[in-house]
Design a protein around this nucleic acid. Structure first.
Lengths: 143, 143
DNA sequence: CTCAATCCCGACGAAATCACTCGGGATTGA
DNA sequence: TCAATCCCGAGTGATTTCGTCGGGATTGAG
């Protein structure tokens, strides 16, 4: 996850390393990285001295991509999913007025996630390019 | 939930009625309404011909209140909860740079929820006072 | 060539959560 | 008095989440 961002440009990082730094079980990490790989966000190189690496620069990877890769489509409820494939319309869709609410929430979340990149989350001192300050939070904190 | 909003001003509605209209199990509704009662959003009147009623007008009840009552504090992760009481700091809080992300998401959700009231969700024809069009969605859909 | 490090993959398991059920009071209008 | 209704706590079954296990397949180094 984020550790890979910190490690960017320094060659591949083995799961063993990451597991140590993050103290998470290595076997579990494997599983997570698999999802990231399927989403083409990281690439793995095999063999001794192998490991994982970001496929693109941290600045170009939005957190919405990461989260979608790890947790599936953004959907507060099944009837308001990002991905039309997975959205199963609930039986009472006709008289259900609540759907708009969920759609709003979903868009809010997606917006927040889109407004941050992996680079925003690597520890401060390493932040290379100043990012435009999120346009989002102004709108959200106004009364 | 929303049905109560629709029913506002027409005296108390029994769970049996609501269960019929919503076709949800009545016993389950009881449980939900309990939470709403604890949050002072609805009041119950007992005895024959009793039922539940909104405690305030639908326009004055924000969906964030409702959701907080039903699902607890708004918190995408435990380390970024609305309610300081329930927020349990994760062990790695020191080196955890991800927290800001969750806080942003939480605020986005809270904002979206605050921007809608129960009245916005009662079926269109019944909407009494025109609400100011949400200030939120403009900000969220801009590139 | 061989071997150890590492990724790749599928299946399994325990714990928490969700949606819902059961059974039995306590109150009140008719 | 009695039936309708709220009030309340405990219990259940399915699903999801977090994490484990074991065994290949690849590749660089010696």
């Amino acid at each position: 996850m984020v550790q890979l961002g910190r490690h960017f440009g320094a060659g591949p990082a083995s799961l063993a390393e990451i597991a140590a730094e993050e103290d998470l079980p290595r076997a579990y990490l494997e599983q997570l990285v698999m999802s990231l790989r399927e989403a083409k966000l990281v690439g793995g190189t095999r063999g001794a001295h192998g490991g994982y690496e970001l496929a693109r620069s941290p600045e170009s990877i939005s957190m919405s991509e990461v989260l979608r890769a790890l947790e599936g489509p953004i959907a507060p409820m099944m009837c308001a999913s990002d991905d039309p494939e997975h959205s199963i319309g609930c039986d009472r869709s006709a008289r259900c007025t609540v759907n708009v609410l969920w759609v709003r929430v979903r868009d809010a979340v997606a917006g927040a996630l889109d407004s941050m990149t992996l680079a925003d989350l690597v520890p401060p001192r390493a932040a290379p390019t100043p990012i435009q300050p999120s346009p989002l939070q102004g709108a959200l904190t106004t009364p």
